[in-house]
Deep mutational scan, measured.
Amino acid sequence: SSGGSSILDRAVIEHNLLSASKLYNNITFEELGALLEIPAAKAEKIASQMITEGRMNGFIDQIDGIVHFETR
Protein backbone atom coordinates (compact mmCIF):
# COMPACT_ATOMS: atom_id res chain seq x y z
CA SER A 1 0.00 0.00 0.00
CA SER A 2 1.24 3.49 -0.79
CA GLY A 3 -0.12 5.50 2.13
CA GLY A 4 1.31 3.58 5.05
CA SER A 5 0.56 0.10 6.21
CA SER A 6 -2.37 -2.13 5.35
CA ILE A 7 -4.85 -3.40 7.92
CA LEU A 8 -2.96 -6.71 8.02
CA ASP A 9 0.40 -5.00 8.57
CA ARG A 10 -1.16 -2.98 11.35
CA ALA A 11 -2.64 -6.10 12.99
CA VAL A 12 0.75 -7.84 12.85
CA ILE A 13 2.50 -4.79 14.34
CA GLU A 14 -0.08 -4.57 17.15
CA HIS A 15 0.23 -8.30 17.86
CA ASN A 16 4.02 -8.02 18.03
CA LEU A 17 3.77 -4.94 20.22
CA LEU A 18 1.55 -6.83 22.67
CA SER A 19 4.03 -9.72 22.65
CA ALA A 20 6.87 -7.27 23.37
CA SER A 21 4.85 -5.81 26.26
CA LYS A 22 4.89 -9.25 27.90
CA LEU A 23 8.65 -9.71 27.41
CA TYR A 24 9.92 -6.28 28.41
CA ASN A 25 9.31 -4.01 31.38
CA ASN A 26 10.30 -1.06 29.24
CA ILE A 27 11.86 -0.43 25.86
CA THR A 28 13.05 2.62 23.92
CA PHE A 29 11.18 3.67 20.79
CA GLU A 30 14.38 2.98 18.82
CA GLU A 31 14.55 -0.62 20.10
CA LEU A 32 10.82 -1.11 19.69
CA GLY A 33 10.94 0.19 16.13
CA ALA A 34 13.85 -2.13 15.32
CA LEU A 35 11.97 -5.05 16.86
CA LEU A 36 8.80 -4.29 14.88
CA GLU A 37 10.75 -3.29 11.74
CA ILE A 38 9.10 0.14 11.62
CA PRO A 39 10.41 3.67 12.28
CA ALA A 40 10.72 4.64 15.95
CA ALA A 41 8.17 7.46 15.54
CA LYS A 42 5.60 5.02 14.17
CA ALA A 43 6.28 2.57 17.01
CA GLU A 44 5.66 5.41 19.47
CA LYS A 45 2.45 6.45 17.73
CA ILE A 46 1.00 2.93 17.64
CA ALA A 47 2.01 2.16 21.24
CA SER A 48 0.50 5.46 22.39
CA GLN A 49 -2.74 4.74 20.54
CA MET A 50 -3.04 1.22 21.96
CA ILE A 51 -2.44 2.47 25.51
CA THR A 52 -4.98 5.29 25.05
CA GLU A 53 -7.57 2.83 23.70
CA GLY A 54 -6.98 0.53 26.68
CA ARG A 55 -5.71 -2.32 24.52
CA MET A 56 -2.30 -2.32 26.17
CA ASN A 57 -1.25 -1.39 29.70
CA GLY A 58 1.57 1.06 30.09
CA PHE A 59 2.67 4.63 29.75
CA ILE A 60 5.01 6.62 27.57
CA ASP A 61 7.96 8.66 28.78
CA GLN A 62 8.41 11.12 25.93
CA ILE A 63 11.39 12.85 27.51
CA ASP A 64 13.48 9.67 27.57
CA GLY A 65 11.71 8.08 24.59
CA ILE A 66 10.68 4.95 26.46
CA VAL A 67 7.52 2.86 26.65
CA HIS A 68 6.96 1.42 30.12
CA PHE A 69 4.74 -1.65 30.01
CA GLU A 70 2.59 -2.49 33.01
CA THR A 71 1.53 -6.07 33.59
CA ARG A 72 -2.09 -6.67 34.47
Score class of each variant (00 low, 15 high):
S1D: 13
S1K: 12
S1T: 13
S2T: 14
S2A: 12
S2H: 11
G3A: 11
G3N: 12
G3F: 04
G3Q: 13
G3E: 14
G3Y: 02
G4S: 12
G4M: 08
G4L: 06
G4W: 00
G4N: 11
S5F: 03
S5N: 12
S5Y: 01
S5T: 13
S5R: 08
S5E: 12
S5D: 14
S6R: 10
S6E: 15
S6F: 04
I7D: 14
I7E: 13
I7Q: 14
L8K: 13
L8F: 12
L8P: 14
L8T: 11
L8A: 11
L8H: 11
D9C: 06
D9F: 02
R10S: 09
R10V: 13
R10K: 09
R10W: 14
R10P: 09
A11P: 06
A11S: 09
A11Q: 12
A11R: 06
A11F: 09
A11V: 10
A11K: 09
A11H: 13
V12A: 12
V12E: 11
V12M: 11
V12I: 13
V12Q: 13
V12K: 11
V12C: 14
V12T: 12
V12L: 13
V12D: 08
I13V: 09
I13E: 04
I13H: 06
I13Q: 05
I13R: 02
I13S: 03
E14M: 07
E14F: 05
E14I: 08
H15Q: 15
H15T: 12
H15G: 12
H15S: 13
H15C: 14
N16I: 14
N16P: 03
N16S: 07
L17I: 15
L17P: 01
L17E: 02
L17N: 02
L18S: 05
L18M: 09
L18E: 05
S19E: 15
S19Y: 09
S19H: 15
S19G: 09
A20M: 11
A20T: 08
A20G: 03
A20P: 02
S21I: 09
S21Q: 04
S21R: 02
S21K: 03
S21D: 03
K22N: 07
K22C: 11
K22Y: 08
K22R: 10
L23M: 13
L23Q: 11
L23Y: 08
Y24K: 05
Y24D: 03
Y24T: 05
Y24W: 07
Y24M: 08
Y24P: 03
Y24I: 07
Y24N: 05
N25C: 11
N25Y: 12
N25K: 15
N25S: 13
N26T: 13
N26M: 14
N26V: 10
N26P: 07
N26I: 10
N26S: 15
N26D: 07
N26L: 11
I27F: 05
I27V: 07
I27G: 00
I27L: 14
I27M: 13
T28L: 03
T28V: 02
T28G: 06
T28C: 04
F29C: 03
F29Q: 00
E30W: 07
E30L: 09
E31Y: 06
E31Q: 09
E31A: 12
E31N: 07
E31S: 07
L32K: 00
L32P: 00
G33Y: 01
G33P: 00
G33W: 03
G33L: 03
A34Y: 11
A34K: 14
A34L: 11
A34I: 13
A34Q: 11
L35H: 04
L35Y: 08
L35C: 05
L35T: 03
L36V: 02
L36E: 00
L36A: 03
L36K: 00
L36H: 01
L36G: 00
E37K: 14
E37F: 07
E37C: 12
I38S: 01
I38G: 01
I38N: 00
I38Q: 02
I38W: 03
I38F: 01
I38P: 00
I38M: 06
P39F: 04
P39R: 03
P39D: 10
P39A: 06
P39M: 04
P39K: 05
A40R: 05
A40H: 04
A40I: 06
A41K: 10
A41L: 08
A41H: 11
A41M: 08
A41C: 08
A41Q: 10
A41F: 08
A41N: 09
K42N: 10
K42G: 07
K42F: 15
K42M: 15
K42S: 14
K42E: 15
K42Q: 15
K42P: 02
K42T: 15
K42C: 15
A43W: 05
A43R: 01
A43M: 04
A43G: 02
A43T: 04
E44R: 13
E44F: 09
E44K: 13
E44G: 13
E44I: 15
E44L: 14
E44T: 09
K45Y: 10
K45R: 10
K45M: 15
K45P: 02
I46D: 00
I46W: 05
I46N: 00
I46P: 00
I46E: 02
A47N: 00
A47D: 00
A47H: 00
A47K: 01
A47S: 05
A47I: 11
S48V: 09
S48A: 13
S48T: 10
S48W: 09
S48F: 09
S48G: 09
S48I: 10
S48Y: 08
Q49N: 08
Q49W: 04
Q49T: 07
Q49K: 07
Q49P: 00
Q49V: 08
Q49E: 15
M50P: 00
M50A: 04
M50C: 04
I51V: 05
I51A: 02
I51C: 04
I51M: 06
I51Q: 03
T52I: 12
T52D: 13
T52W: 08
T52L: 14
T52F: 11
T52K: 15
T52G: 10
E53S: 08
E53D: 09
E53L: 06
E53C: 06
E53G: 06
E53T: 08
E53Y: 01
E53I: 05
G54A: 05
G54I: 02
G54Q: 05
G54F: 02
G54D: 04
G54V: 02
R55S: 05
R55Y: 05
R55E: 03
M56V: 10
M56L: 15
M56Y: 02
M56T: 02
M56S: 01
N57S: 13
N57G: 11
N57K: 14
G58R: 01
G58P: 00
G58S: 02
G58M: 03
F59N: 05
F59S: 09
F59W: 15
F59V: 08
I60M: 04
I60H: 01
D61N: 12
D61F: 06
D61R: 06
Q62W: 15
Q62V: 14
Q62T: 14
I63P: 06
I63Q: 11
I63K: 13
I63S: 09
I63G: 08
I63V: 13
I63Y: 09
I63E: 12
D64N: 15
D64S: 15
D64F: 14
G65A: 06
G65R: 10
G65L: 05
I66K: 14
I66T: 11
I66Q: 06
I66W: 05
I66E: 06
V67P: 03
V67S: 01
V67H: 01
H68E: 05
H68R: 08
H68M: 05
H68W: 14
F69M: 04
F69C: 03
F69T: 03
E70F: 10
E70Y: 10
E70S: 06
E70D: 11
E70R: 08
T71P: 14
T71R: 09
T71M: 07
T71W: 08
T71K: 14
T71E: 11
R72P: 14
R72Y: 10
